[in-house]
Design a protein around this nucleic acid. Sequence first.
RNA 1: GCGCUUGUAGCUCAGCUGGAUAGAGUAUCGGCCUCCGAAGCCGAAGGCCAUGGGUUCGAAUCCCAUCAAGCGCGCCA
Length: 595
Amino acid sequence: MIKHLQELLEKAVEDLQRKGIFPKDLAPNISFERTRNKDHGDFATNMALTLAKPLSKPPREIAQLIIDELIESSHVAKVEIAGPGFLNFFLTENCRRQVIKQVLKLRDKFGDNQFGNDKKITVEFVSANPTGPLHVGHGRGAAYGASLSNILEKSGYQVQREYYVNDNGRQMDILATSVWLRYLELCGEKVVFPDNGYQGDYIVNIARKVRKKYGDKFIFNNQEVYEAVPADEKDGGNKESHIDGLVTNAKNLLGKESYGKVFKIALKNILSGIKEDLEKFNVSYDSWFSEKQLHDGDTIDRALELLDDKKYLYEKDGAIWFMATHFGDEKDRVVTRENGQKTYFASDIAYLLNKFERGFEGALYVFGADHHGYIARLKAAAKGMGINPNDIEIVLTQFANLIEHGEKVQMGTRSGKFVSLSQLVDDVGVDAARFFYVMRSHDQHLDFDLDLAKSQSSDNPVYYIQYAHARICSIFDKLEQQAMHHNLEIGNAGLNLLVADQEQDLLRAIASYPEVMVAAARTRAPHLLANYLRELAQNYHSYYNAHQVGVDDENLRNARLNLSLATKIILANGLKLLGASAPVSMFSEDMKEQA
RNA sequence: GCGCUUGUAGCUCAGCUGGAUAGAGUAUCGGCCUCCGAAGCCGAAGGCCAUGGGUUCGAAUCCCAUCAAGCGCGCCA
């Protein structure tokens, strides 16, 4: 529709140019926006305002010239000049109603668009280290990444959802060692658990599995375990060198094979836990990409060679550095440490290269706000390897505070006290959890009100939307019981009977869905969809309270049913994209049945 | 100290690439069930868009400064 209006205006401008009223070299930027206020019609353009300067004429005068030149359109009822010089377009009522037919025909494809131009992209999100279960802090990235991926997919991107598994680093060694130490404890050895080890109970559970599978095979006595290990922090030493010493001993005592077994059990258990948690959270991935495979293959070496060939690497203090400052980063970054080990950043570079080698045309990263320091260096690496930095995009999600009884829930990994994502889902349900995380802009700090999310009341925005959906389902049920069967054709034929204010409002809302989808995709903002669904539900609730759908008049009834069905389709579609369900009934026993 | 992000109603937040009278929810107050589900609807009240400058036809939006909050600044991952 916007396109149609643009063509009308382009035509008018051309004619004015031909008549010599507008200069020939004028190339106006004609943009339309849906009006916020219905008194301003359906669509408005500010083009007369933007032309005021180049034409040195008052905007309202220009607007009048354009209107006089506009040709008739069967879709446009009238065009008005308003305010400082806006052109307000009013569509014919008939034109507005056509959208219902479209929704009923396209069903869940309504709103699909080609904004993404078939671009092949990876969306990487969460990617938490597999050293423990996901906590609520990861929830926002998960909800955001999953919802955004869904929206991008509907908007013409080819999306690959990816989880980067950091299964190759010091943290993983600490994990494996933590498990081994708990195992020794279980076997009756005396162990003082290190300050910097992973404290959680889940480590003990994994240790149990190790013991069950391998019995006493990995036992060493206390003296061997602590041989030449520097003192821990609690004993006045350094917790980092203490744990490193333990890791070294673990590797030496167990030997490569046995150590590998412990390592593998730990990784496998934690990773499958993470997968379960995400699945429970209605988040799915297309691939789980292992960092290890970058090391095992030659990708890291090739990536570094690529940089080296272009003289972007140099040696200093025994380490190898990447000239990130050359590409706008604030400092150069080490890629190979003095001890010969590759840094985490080296893997990142390789992974980036790998994404483009696999044929992706864009890489989108969803990071927590604490990682914002990575943007510059990642873009620098891209530039260094000859990848267009515009093809990599990093979106930050701000932190979420959990609020319970009006108080911030304190969390810290040090205290070992954190609320797991799984626990949150158990408490508030997937629907509310997913919705709460994405209902605010991702770059906004978020207060996640647990009590509100738990409340099964009007206070809870997700229920509000689901209720509208359930309500519509209930109408259809009811009429079906009374043998007033819904007839699409009769409904479509009677659309001209939809004249009530609330019906017009609802039509406006329905018609704007595709635009919301594009906007959400373009600005990477799922919360736009969440807000939109609230508005759509609001429009329906108002309508429902003002008018009876199940009236005796067959024509009007079916027209209203068509309108209701169109609303229902969009509600269900939108909820699905955000990872929430669209229940047929809000009665709790029915909700359970649904699940 | 430097850098990134943020500051809008009592509270939680929208406000698209600068546009028309700054909007929701919640809390508060007042109405609406003989009627398809009241987890709903209708109405009232609530604002120096942190502060001070600047850019222009026009600024919550862009620029600068100040104040306040969060985060980051390792040969950690």
